[in-house]
Design a protein around this nucleic acid. Structure first.
Lengths: 272, 272
DNA sequence: GCGACTTTGTGCCTGCGTTCACAAGCGGCT
DNA sequence: AGCCGCTTGTGAACGCAGGCACAAAGTCGC
């Protein structure tokens, strides 16, 4: 119960959203040091993912010279409901102006701050196959980047060969090199059998966040955050939908002719 | 019938249970009644994603000669709660034997049936850059595959060059070639500016499911299913967690175990 | 300077997905 | 043959996320 109380009833609502969410899940405030950025804890995971999308859209707008944007415009461009967008933004504070909208630059700065993009995150990619190559060259992230500072593989032919400007090292060197280069995010793009071993080495090196492309369930200490991207699963989900359609409406079959590509979205007419 | 009123109150901390209990009214989604496969409609999206994971684990078990498995074992291997696993499986029918477990082969067959893997889904990959190469060569999917039957790009140097055994065609030929090869799933791995145009062509070709790797929000008719994989967003989510940790516990910490988020092991101790 | 208009921020309600706990059911043991 | 232990399948509770709708708050026009 930090400084809540009647302030939100009285007029100002400093950081109300953090309250009602935290109230249920975590009775323990744990406002260590500064109570300022602590509300970041209360942001729902799903909202974080969307914030990243908003950030990209905003970056594009900034480049086009757009200075101000309303929740309606931004939500349309990001493909979400405008109420949801406003709620997402309210998690990180109140940076809008009623009757006007949001200042693009301010919003960009705030989202970057919350997402931790103000300090660069070193990334290590393990497994320099096709996918690893793609990732190593992916350098062009929007706004601040995630510099890939280390590459690893087991293939002797790859050792020392630079890919995307970074030489490849042997996975046995993961602990030393990652620690030395202060890698904070590890990306696993190895064949499935090697993934767990690689993961263990990354953890050993102090990496606390891992993006896993290998189709295996990694076992990690609970201090380590893992996100998984599984191409096969994505395809199978789509396959499910194909099958569902086929079962569901066997009559309305594929008729390419009648399906004129109407750029009809969900009622949203975003042109850009 | 369940006298759970007592046993529940015994070990729980009920907070105002009266309110929400008011209107449960189970939707009753017209499940079975006739045992048709039409109930596939009722499977939650999240459950479908997990079914794909179970399928992979089961395939591995089958190869190792495992004939039968309990929900406890399977859930541990898949990194989920055992109750959740059983509920997921119950969506597709009752194929377990009480007191024993599930027959691996039966489960594999049923999951494949529900996911629509019994008929092969032709996949087209558009954008043969680094990522496109990786996808084109990804052929080795578990169990039944998703044969990649068409590749497209705009680069004249790539035309006709086989990648992963399939020649590359120009994106202008998407409508004809995709229709001819009965492509059901399109994968977009192009640069962002080209994505929407490619998407339109795929839709025009009759493709109803699209996997989008380009960081743009695609506008499609509502008959088309789009799934998005965004590497930058994934990294930014991880970055958020790095930042949260840094703010939260500058020193060695005890992670708030409340969210071991991510479908990873929930304190499940796995052999090895 | 005041009123009307615009847009944000959010309380509340609804619905979905996850979790819990237990009865039903099956096999093996005595 | 009957009981006992194990495991499934599921009804019900719980918590989170999404969406509506409105009051608060600021701007613009007159």
């Amino acid at each position: 119960m930090a400084q809540r109380g009647q302030s939100d009833a009285a007029g100002r609502t400093p950081r109300a959203p953090a309250e009602n969410a935290a109230e249920i899940t975590t009775p323990m405030p744990t406002i260590n040091g500064n109570g300022l950025r602590d509300r970041a804890r209360a942001i729902p995971e799903a909202a974080v993912a969307r914030l990243a999308v908003y950030l990209r859209v905003l970056s594009g707008m900034k480049e086009q010279g757009v200075a101000s944007v309303s929740s309606e415009e931004l939500s349309a461009a990001a493909g979400v409901n405008s109420a949801k967008l406003r709620k997402d933004l309210s998690y990180i504070g109140s940076y809008g102006t009623r009757g006007v909208g949001y200042e693009v630059e301010v919003l960009i700065d705030q989202i970057e701050r919350v997402l931790g993009l103000t300090r660069e995150q070193s990334v290590a990619v393990v497994g320099i196959g096709n996918l690893g190559h793609a990732l190593a060259n992916y350098g062009g992230f929007p706004g601040r980047g995630f510099p890939v500072t280390a590459l690893f593989d087991v293939d002797p032919d790859l050792m020392g060969v630079p890919v995307g400007g970074i030489p490849v090292d042997h996975i046995d060197d993961i602990p030393t090199i990652c620690a030395a280069r202060e890698v904070t995010i590890g990306v696993i793009a190895t064949p499935p059998p090697a993934a767990q071993a690689v993961c263990d080495r990354l953890v050993q090196a102090g990496v606390e966040c891992i993006l896993n492309f290998a189709p295996v369930v990694l076992q990690v200490p609970e201090t380590v955050e893992v996100r998984k991207v599984d191409l096969a699963v994505e395809l199978q989900i789509l396959s499910f939908h194909v099958a569902r359609r086929a079962d569901h409406a066997p009559a309305a079959d594929v008729t390419p002719a009648q399906r004129v590509n109407g750029a009809q979205a969900n009622g949203v007419v975003v042109r850009r």
